[in-house]
């Protein structure tokens, strides 16, 4: 239960530090344990995306430390940070961001190729991933041939392909209709419960907030409220 995956110590991210400093994130402490299904909520400009970018190693804090699974990523060189992201963090973006020239299968396989995984293992894992996201029939289709909901499920499969420590999802349902959003949430929920996969997502969507077992509210770059995680899924 104390298996902390994400641990931020007093992190701050300041824009315009030399003129009129604007704190996107201010002195923030956050712990995320393995298997959590956490929603980051808050008004626009509250720092949700900035926090996800910092945790995802896409941005660096001006102050503080971010420890992922025991590694302080703020001290990693750019090259090592890229490698760290590849092996430890899965991303799901608001606008899907699949590689348009690759099929659904290839999009997921791309990550594994970057990791240097063998073909047999890749094939096996792709079968499993697309079964989990219920897209076995559409595996050879390109993103342009898939609906928004299907594309976001491919994005989830791609995020899972690298067997990351956790998945960061930036407003994953924002561009989806309610049916597709509900479907995606079912899949993410199932993966969380059955595979113990950690999800941290930013959202405005009340349907997502309702399904989250921990809700962190950000206001002006600081945690305004943090519900206790409901860890019902840790049966195994």
């Amino acid at each position: 239960m104390n298996d902390i995956v994400i641990d931020t110590h007093n992190i701050s991210r300041v824009y315009n530090p030399t003129t009129i400093p604007v704190y996107a994130i201010k002195n923030l402490h956050l712990h995320i344990r393995r298997g959590e299904f956490t929603a980051l909520v808050g008004p626009s400009g509250s720092g949700k995306t900035t926090l996800l970018n910092l945790i995802g190693g896409l941005d660096k804090p001006d102050e503080g430390q971010i420890v992922i699974n025991g590694t302080d990523i703020t001290k990693l060189s750019p090259g090592k940070l890229i490698d760290f992201r590849l092996h430890n963090i899965g991303f799901v973006f608001q606008s899907f961001n699949l590689i348009p020239v690759l099929t659904a299968r290839e999009n997921a396989e791309f990550i594994m190729l970057l990791q240097g995984i063998s073909k047999n293992e890749r094939d096996e894992r792709i079968k499993q991933l697309f079964r989990q996201v219920d897209l076995e029939e559409q595996i050879e289709r390109r993103p342009s041939e898939l609906s928004g909901g299907q594309q976001q499920r491919v994005a989830v499969a791609r995020a899972l392909a690298s067997k990351p420590q956790f998945i960061l999802a930036d407003e994953p349902t924002a561009n989806l209709d309610s049916k597709s959003a509900s479907n995606l949430l079912d899949i993410m929920n199932k993966l969380n419960k059955e595979e113990n996969i950690t999800f941290l997502f930013s959202t405005h969507d009340q349907r997502v907030i309702d399904r989250a077992r921990r809700v962190i509210t950000l206001v002006d770059g600081q945690i305004a409220s943090d519900t206790e995680p409901i860890m019902t899924s840790y049966a195994h």
Binding site: L86, F91, L114
Partner: peptide, 16 residues
């Protein structure tokens, strides 16, 4: 630009 940024975010090295 966005696509290349995404590939980099996922973990593709600069050399790739």
């Amino acid at each position: 630009t966005r696509e290349i940024g995404m590939i980099a975010a996922l973990g593709a090295s600069r050399i790739r």
